[in-house]
Simulated scan of single mutants.
Amino acid sequence: MTIAPTTTGAGASPPSQDGGRPNERLPAHRLVARATGSYIARIQPQYLSDTSAAVAELARLRRGAGKRVHQVQDLWGVGGTEELARLLDGRKEFIRLEYAEEAVFLASTLWALHQQSGRDAGMHDPRQHLGGAVRALIRLKGASGEDEEDSPLRKRLVRVGTAESLDSVAVRLREIVLLLRGAREPLDYARLAGQLYRWQHRPDRAGVQREWGREFHLAAASASASVAVARKGKPSSGVDTGDTRDTSDTGDSGDSGDAIDRALAPDEEFGGYAAGE
């Protein structure tokens, strides 16, 4: 089956329920992100409230974490693919269907793995992107300054960026998600799904790789700025400045969600990069 490529918002879809914006104004990867976000937004509150159906569904989804959509037949029609089909109804010629299905499936199953046994908070959080989440995790482990650049966690992110196949990306993301789960550090899975869709299209891959790198580095810059502001506004005691730095860097003060440059907000078509870059 031949699927016409989508690099801009040319594809048209029926009006969405998200703010009343018609889908024809959205590029393909945004529809993928929306399908993933809509699915998780529906299931996550049910899981947090211990609804039996949601608990069972996440248990099924976790079996697919790090795998390809065709490898887990038991999950066909589960994990956001129904939302994707609804958004693309009658407009499938404007999107690479296999890429879309793989991206939604991988992001949904990784979220289920991340959310496992956690009822205190949802692990899908639009405020935290992949690079920023890894940076936050490094700091939670106690690294600072030059130690962050040599961290094994940073090397794991680099391995995701340098992967040459979707199978490799899936396995390496699974490794990172398991570490994020242990630290209860959330991640924006809708944005990740959109990035995974673009990553599969070779001309867009460099742009996604740059986004992951920028997310990581801009998280450091934003966190440093937050520390400077906190120090400027706090009376000097001559004792607690070191503790103030550590609290801000680890995100315990609630600043971790803001440690992302808004130039990378998910409502930008290509996260600051041109299509095909």
Rank of each mutant, 00 (worst) to 15 (best):
L61T: 03
V229H: 14
G271M: 00
K92V: 12
V69L: 05
G131S: 04
Q73G: 15
F270N: 01
S253T: 08
K67V: 07
I95E: 02
R262K: 11
L88E: 04
Q46C: 10
E164Y: 09
H129E: 00
E175V: 14
D167S: 14
L26G: 10
D89Y: 15
R25P: 15
L180T: 06
T81L: 12
Y99Q: 01
A223D: 07
P235R: 00
I3T: 12
G37F: 04
R25N: 14
S144W: 11
L178Y: 11
S108E: 02
L264E: 07
D261P: 15
E149T: 14
F94V: 06
D252E: 09
P203S: 05
R139H: 12
L140W: 05
R139V: 05
Y39H: 03
R159E: 11
G80M: 01
E269P: 06
T51W: 11
L48F: 07
D120N: 10
G132V: 01
G19T: 05
E269W: 08
G90T: 07
K232F: 11
L130A: 05
V55R: 02
D18P: 15
K155N: 13
Q71S: 12
D89H: 15
E98F: 15
S168T: 13
H129I: 10
L192I: 03
A10H: 11
R181M: 07
V208A: 08
A103R: 02
S165L: 04
I176Y: 03
G272W: 00
Q46S: 12
L88G: 07
A54H: 04
N23R: 09
E101A: 08
F270Y: 04
R202G: 13
E83Q: 09
E268G: 12
S49G: 15
A163S: 10
